[in-house]
Design a protein around this nucleic acid. Structure first.
Lengths: 364, 364
DNA sequence: GAGGGGAATTGAAACATTTCAACACCCGCA
DNA sequence: TGCGGGTGTTGAAATGTTTCAATTCCCCTC
């Protein structure tokens, strides 16, 4: 139990000189079956052109030799590939891991293989991955962009790569996109807190270069104004560099140090909220008694936290599926293709982490 | 808020006749720069052979034309590719999404691209993906196998594809493997419960065709015997077909119907435990007062459940990283390569979901 | 002024496919 | 007997690279 960091390495027998030197090619199959190269290809790609008898012969040669077609070579001549790239901002986040299954199931059905990349919110790493994916001649790319600028994605599209924005709208609709209305999400959260009577709320946001973050802030401000408050007065925003539980803890510390401590906190995602809740408990501050907390994304376990987390639900499964569908139709629509934007609406899920502020002030 | 299922589709302007017809190749670059094809290739692959002046000329032609190398063609001639396949059992599970980052970061550093596949525990789907990955000539495959049989993986290895078992040991060490000792994990959980005084525990297990499940059961039985109990008496095992919260709820229902209701439940993973906790609360059964619960995996949010979940921690980050490292050395070790198995030890994390049984019976 | 040697460049073969025009064969019909 | 028309099959070109032996060029030395 204590040697968790000291894995037991067990080097065991078995040097393998067995690695196949050279792979078999269709030429070998053709020779073995006594037919021409073209016929083997036809058996594989247009069997209706080949006589029954010949087909059987070729197929049994394939099986006998253990021939495995070479997809790259195939693609070289044939053109399009059956591969799509997925570039997410943080592969480990529950948010993306709840989107991925929707993507995967849809694309697997269409026989696509997924190349999954994590930009870790770095535009450089994103650029590197995009370049690499383009070199691999993927049929399309699903991406949740790291930065605000998406010119490079439009250019990519013009070079013939299908592009669908995930969780983000394009500018001037030059790209297909699937997104959730983040302004609305921020508004819902703010509206909920303000109408509970909160007059000053902390906002643990991500960098505003991330579009989602900027949008949610806008929604939050809108809700404040609608409640008759000055956003700059009512909202104390802190920019986190890491959007996980750790970030939530450091953000909370800053908010508590504030001379005008807020009575509620809106967190940019559920992981941040988790950190806040965890730290509130450690500090002996009651939630929601002394401090209300709202999360974002409504990941699967949000309902199971203590207290159960009020959050903004994103239809993640649908998001993934819709994106995959858009990409697939993008392929099919050979020429005159119209860019589509699908916008889902988020939903406020009220649970146990929000309540009116301790000394319910001047409610409007 | 109510139209979450009715996304607003906004078809907008922009049919693009812009799609590039034919891609440029190195031949075009060569022509533009006034050099031969071979020189362009050298600039890209062995710049030390090419004169400064020429390099500059070629590079500026590449930039001017917007040339993008063709990775498949490259691979065709060059041999090995920079792609690895990852086949997990359930892409959406928090368990795998906590392993993936470790893999990704390590392999990204080595300039590999990840093809991620989800077998959904179906050997057929797994076989399909393995075939497809092999056709793509991936350099290697990291896999958490769906079934017990891994002969096909050994064969794959012999055909020259690097294979590393993830979260599972091979038989007779014919493959590299990274795993956590599951027998030990089951033992830890059982030992904890039995020494708390529980004499009958429910075990929500997965299908025993899954090796991990069989191993954990073995550990659990071992702990029972060590506590002087007959495993068949002391353990009431239920096989779940789906290992998520839903499965946990249905499993709990069965355990409660049992004429000899257990006083504790050991769940095959944390998601199942989540379902159990959720349903216990719904039924008004106190945890851990009336029913103790132990999870497995110790996913990130286990500590945040209510009550905080006692669980078996797997070093997931390290698991991913170690697997990636093993695969990379597998590539480098050209010939006489020794298969390595790295076994991590799990750790019991005691939190608030376990306690002595209500009427502490005859403690040994 | 001839020859040697190193650096830079070239040309062609090779990689494993797909595609397509051309060919062979067989059958029925005039 | 010759001929048209399928149906199957073939051969060769094309795809975008890498690799490597061969070649050119230039400078230096004797």
């Amino acid at each position: 139990m204590s040697d968790i960091d000291r894995p037991s390495k067990t080097s065991t027998s078995g040097s393998d000189g067995e690695r196949a030197r050279t792979r078999l090619s269709m030429v070998d199959v053709a020779a073995h079956a006594g037919v021409s190269l073209g016929t083997v290809s036809n058996v594989l790609n247009r069997p209706e052109l080949v006589a029954e008898r010949t087909q059987r012969r070729v197929r049994s040669s394939i099986a006998a030799l253990g021939f495995v077609p070479n997809a790259p070579a195939r693609q070289l001549r044939g053109g399009r590939s059956r591969t799509v790239g997925v570039v997410v901002r943080e592969i480990g986040s529950p948010y993306f891991s709840e989107i991925l299954p929707g993507l995967e199931s849809k694309l697997a059905k269409e026989q696509f293989l997924l190349m999954v990349c994590s930009s870790d919110d770095s535009p450089d790493k994103e650029a590197y991955y995009l370049k690499t994916l383009e070199e691999h001649r993927v049929a399309g790319i699903l991406i949740s962009p790291a930065g605000d600028d998406i010119e490079h994605l439009i250019a990519l599209r013009q070079r013939g790569v299908g592009v669908v924005l995930l969780d983000r709208l394009g500018v001037g609709s030059q790209l297909c996109a699937v997104a959730v209305n983040n302004v609305q999400g921020g508004d819902l959260a703010g509206d909920h807190l303000f109408s509970l009577g909160h007059r000053r709320i902390g906002f643990l946001n991500g960098p505003s270069t991330v579009r989602q973050c900027a949008d949610r802030r806008e929604g939050l401000h809108r809700a404040a104004r609608r409640a008759g408050l000055d956003p700059d007065e009512a909202i104390s925003e802190i920019t986190l560099s890491v959007l996980n539980a750790q970030g939530g803890e450091t953000g909370l510390a800053q908010l508590l140090d504030d001379e005008r401590r807020p009575s509620a906190i809106f967190c940019i995602n559920d992981m941040v909220a988790v950190g806040v809740l965890r730290d509130l408990e450690k500090r002996g501050i009651a939630a929601p008694g002394e401090m209300s907390v709202v999360g974002y994304d409504d990941v699967e376990f949000a309902a199971l936290l203590s207290p159960a987390l009020t959050s903004i639900r994103m239809p993640k499964q649908q998001l993934g599926q819709a994106a995959a569908e858009l990409l697939v139709t993008d392929f099919r629509a050979d020429d005159n293709h119209w860019h589509q934007e699908i916008v889902f609406q988020p939903e406020l899920i009220i649970r146990a982490s929000t309540a009116p502020p301790p000394t319910s002030g001047q409610a409007s």
